[in-house]
Computed example of a mutant assay.
Amino acid sequence: MVKAAFRSLPIALVLLLAGCSSAYYGAMEKMGIAKRDILAERVEKTREAQTEAKQQFADALQRFLAVTKNDGGDLQKKYDELNREFQRSESRAKEVRERIAAVEDVAEALFREWQQELSQYTSASLKADSQRQLDATRRRYDGLLAVMRRAANRMDPVIATFRDQVLYLKHNLNARALAQLDSTNRTLEADITRLIADMEASIKDADSFIKELKSKP
């Protein structure tokens, strides 16, 4: 029941609590939730946020293409449609970055604690084995974080392009402006294709990391 409640915490509350990380993690451990559990949960939430962002960017691209290739209709309505897609995409991108930051916070706390506790061993063989596990887990985590960050960074040029197009159309509601937006379609498609590929790689790696983390004692 405790873990079910933990899973339902919204991102805003998680980030607020994480602002006082030591106290928060200490409180969670008293409730039977270890840092390893929190790390697995946050990686899972990041994976979900990336899945949603991937779908949003794909949907936004289709909307953008549909609007710029259609010469008829109300230009104000077209602007409103594109602006809504931009706002949704920007919101998804922000959530992904917040989720990654939350993962980094608990991971650093976990590895710091693990390293400190090595000095408490009296058995040299157990200490060495724990050190090997720590090093392996850290390397695996560093690889996952790099993939997550690469995917997140791919969002920047897409968001920038969307913002430019929305702003341009906002102040130039005419057919000529629409034609100008159409000229960026190929670049935008290429950027989003690369973004989706990186998102999928990150999602896959997150799945693997979660399974590995949960399989270890």
Score class of each variant (00 low, 15 high):
167 L>N: 13
75 L>Y: 05
176 R>L: 13
161 T>V: 11
174 N>R: 08
131 Q>E: 09
137 T>W: 00
135 D>G: 07
201 A>Y: 00
193 T>L: 04
77 K>F: 06
205 D>L: 14
117 E>D: 12
146 A>T: 06
181 L>P: 12
50 Q>M: 12
128 A>F: 01
72 G>E: 05
201 A>S: 09
89 S>Q: 05
75 L>T: 13
116 Q>H: 12
132 R>F: 12
10 P>R: 11
189 E>F: 10
110 L>I: 05
80 D>G: 10
147 V>E: 13
191 D>E: 11
112 R>S: 02
2 V>C: 02
105 D>K: 01
16 L>W: 01
157 P>K: 09
92 R>S: 10
45 K>L: 02
84 R>A: 12
193 T>W: 00
55 Q>C: 07
206 A>L: 01
11 I>N: 15
197 A>M: 03
199 M>T: 11
164 D>R: 15
63 R>T: 13
175 A>S: 13
88 R>L: 15
70 N>L: 15
42 R>A: 04
200 E>I: 02
106 V>H: 00
38 I>Y: 02
205 D>Q: 14
7 R>I: 10
174 N>E: 09
49 A>Y: 05
134 L>C: 12
37 D>P: 06
211 K>E: 05
152 A>R: 08
146 A>L: 10
90 E>M: 11
212 E>D: 15
134 L>D: 01
158 V>L: 07
42 R>W: 02
94 K>P: 11
211 K>C: 04
193 T>D: 08
176 R>D: 08
191 D>G: 03
135 D>A: 13
192 I>T: 05
200 E>W: 04
212 E>P: 12
155 M>R: 07
127 K>N: 09
170 K>V: 04
85 E>Q: 06
2 V>Y: 01
75 L>A: 14
53 A>L: 09
61 L>F: 06
175 A>E: 14
136 A>Y: 00
27 A>Q: 09
80 D>C: 09
125 S>D: 07
152 A>W: 00
167 L>W: 07
124 A>C: 01
173 L>Y: 00
175 A>P: 03
31 M>L: 15
121 Y>M: 10
188 L>F: 05
104 E>P: 02
76 Q>W: 00
7 R>W: 00
121 Y>R: 03
195 L>K: 10
80 D>N: 14
76 Q>L: 00
127 K>T: 11
40 A>S: 14
161 T>Q: 13
99 R>T: 01
77 K>C: 02
21 S>Y: 02
53 A>T: 10
27 A>G: 07
